[in-house]
């Protein structure tokens, strides 16, 4: 069970003077149950890549398959949910409940089961019962975003792809969203997060891919990433590398605060011990 991308090349506006290669010979595979990050500068082809995961774009050459099916097959839409950038634009329901129910209804859920899925998606994102029957357009920007995300989570698909879900969210909502994604992931859902600033997400990911101008330039674990990647390092990794350069004997492949804390205290303690 996986999403497999084999030698994918894609060009926009083929056959015109605006033609542009946005993905060049990209191969990767994402297993069921993984938490994956896809990073890269703006314009590096991240959104173009994820549009292939549920068949919205067809490869110019190469293949994309989901659990063995070609990605543009209709059934794939019931396995891979994609949340695009600026998802608050897609709201249209009369009430928050109706809007979130749109996806699950399209996938055939009715009655109690539908209610349950809508409620649990909204609850997971910290949205209280009092807004269920409110028009989504009366909510704040951050809440609208969360409702739109709930609209994708509520369908309970096997793979959930989110394109820049954190950009423009405040710290509180970021935390809520991240823990919701981790919760889903712990129950077996594959979570694929696209972000041009992925350094602060490294500690939750199983695997990381980095795109640069349409080319896949890195694929591996977060630990390998901070060891090998030339750029886009988390601040905490930069700090550890700098400490190393200054002669402290700390590890340079650390990317979360807790590890950094214990590593620094270990080194400080040994220093103390030596001094005594």
């Amino acid at each position: 069970m996986s999403i497999d991308v084999r030698n994918l090349t894609f060009r926009y506006d083929r056959g015109t003077s605006l033609e542009k290669t946005s993905l060049e010979d990209v191969s990767l595979s994402i297993d069921k149950g993984e938490f994956v990050l896809i990073g890269g500068e703006i314009g590096s082809g991240k959104s173009t890549l994820v549009r292939h995961f549920n068949g919205l774009l067809k490869p110019f050459s190469g293949q994309v398959t989901v659990d063995g099916m070609a990605a543009h097959e209709k059934k794939v839409k019931a396995r891979v949910g994609v949340l695009f950038q600026f998802p608050q634009q897609q709201l249209f329901g009369r009430t928050v409940f109706e809007d979130v129910a749109f996806g699950p209804r399209n996938f055939g859920y009715r009655g109690n089961e539908l209610d349950l899925q809508v409620h649990s998606a909204l609850e997971l994102l910290g949205l209280g019962k009092e807004i269920y029957s409110v028009s989504p357009f009366r909510l704040s920007g951050g809440q609208m975003r969360l409702v739109a995300i709930a609209g994708v989570l509520a369908s309970r698909l096997d793979y959930i792809v989110l394109d820049e879900p954190f950009s423009g969210l405040d710290a509180e909502n970021k935390k809520i969203l991240l823990s919701a994604l981790r919760h889903l992931n712990s129950r077996g859902t594959s979570v694929i997060v696209v972000s041009h600033r992925m350094s602060d997400l490294l500690s939750v990911a199983d695997r990381v891919f980095l795109l640069d101008q349409g080319n896949l330039v890195f694929g591996g674990t977060p630990a390998e990433y901070v060891k090998h990647a030339p750029s886009h390092l988390p601040e905490i990794t930069c700090l550890m590398k700098e400490l190393r350069r200054k002669g402290f004997d700390v590890r340079g492949d650390i990317f979360n605060i807790d590890d950094a804390f214990s590593e620094i205290s270990r080194v400080l303690n040994t220093k103390e011990a030596v001094r005594r």
Binding site: N54, L56, A78, V82, F84, Q90, F102
Partner: peptide
């Protein structure tokens, strides 16, 4: 962009044209 988003939420434009018009026109006008 909107069409991609709604299709990703399971909208089948050919089988359900009324739903398609509704779920696309409201956000479009906004």
């Amino acid at each position: 962009h909107l069409r991609d988003a709604q299709v990703s939420r399971g909208l089948d434009m050919a089988r359900n044209p009324f739903k398609a018009v509704y779920s696309l026109s409201v956000p479009m006008v906004r």
